[in-house]
Write a protein that binds this DNA or RNA. Sequence first.
DNA 1: CGTATAGGTCAACATTCTTGACCTATAAAA
DNA 2: TTTTATAGGTCAAGAATGTTGACCTATACG
Lengths: 163, 163
Amino acid sequence: MNDEEQKLNEVLMLFYFAYRTFTEKPDQMIERYGIQRVHHRILFFIARVPGITVNELFTVLEVSKQAMNMPLRQLYEKGFIEAEQAKFDKRYKQLFLTEKGHQLEQELSKVQREQMKEIFSSLGGDHQEAWTDVMEELSKMRPGRNQLKALFREKRKVNKIGR
Amino acid sequence: MNDEEQKLNEVLMLFYFAYRTFTEKPDQMIERYGIQRVHHRILFFIARVPGITVNELFTVLEVSKQAMNMPLRQLYEKGFIEAEQAKFDKRYKQLFLTEKGHQLEQELSKVQREQMKEIFSSLGGDHQEAWTDVMEELSKMRPGRNQLKALFREKRKVNKIGR
DNA sequence: CGTATAGGTCAACATTCTTGACCTATAAAA
DNA sequence: TTTTATAGGTCAAGAATGTTGACCTATACG
């Protein structure tokens, strides 16, 4: 067992531990709203791409349509999101955060952003860029990631005309 | 929405996507053995700390004793791990990989190590160190991580005498 | 008009995890 | 030595997150 292998084993461990810390705070915060991590993910991606359709959402998250159905319904019922029939094609529904949804999403993601921000700034130098490069390499083979990039490239308007 | 916030939102996304890629290959590989991700985690940590006790194992993983019970039993039954009554205290059981367990653990973790190794070497420079620094910062507040470090510090022998 | 797509829903089931309760064996303290 | 604490094991109920398959409506398009 050489030194390189040992360092890479550390890398594998750190992924497990770091991911737990990363999700810990928002998980605790949303408990009082009666929702869970999957709802947070949905709020997060709708916030990033307002007007995302249901189909695009589960393509980005790489889960089945059925896996999104119940959480979406709960988010409607709790008043965090709303849907609008798309003007360019009435079959599509575009998803948006309500004011309440915006507030919650900000509250949750802010905690995570600040946690990462503090770490990056405490380590200084090019840590943020280097970390991002590595994670981007891991992400670039994800269909969901590429779908999301496509959505950004569209620079989609809230009431877009065509696709 | 400023540039910094946007970059940090990217960071949050990348965590989700990267973690999926990271776990994807081993998840597929172990299917044919009739085991899942939790079993891989157990194999991995027993490989890192041969002779780890059951208690130490679920402390490191930060899950309940009951959550480990079934997967451990399945790993015994499938011949991937074995337990030995500890000489220093007969209440403790020390866990070890069998030869078969070693082979499987190597096969699984190797895929992940090589995936990370390729990314680090393709990006070059200090990417591995920087990435590790960031993840270590996120991990250092995990009780499991610190328990694990303590186990390493003990430089535990397979048949240790005292605690 | 026929077919494809977007969205919704129901059902059955799998995985991973929790809490609570209760058991034995062993060790350590009163 | 008796009591208490700890390590490990097990059962049960349930929550959270996901899967497949089947089937439905509304809309769009060739």
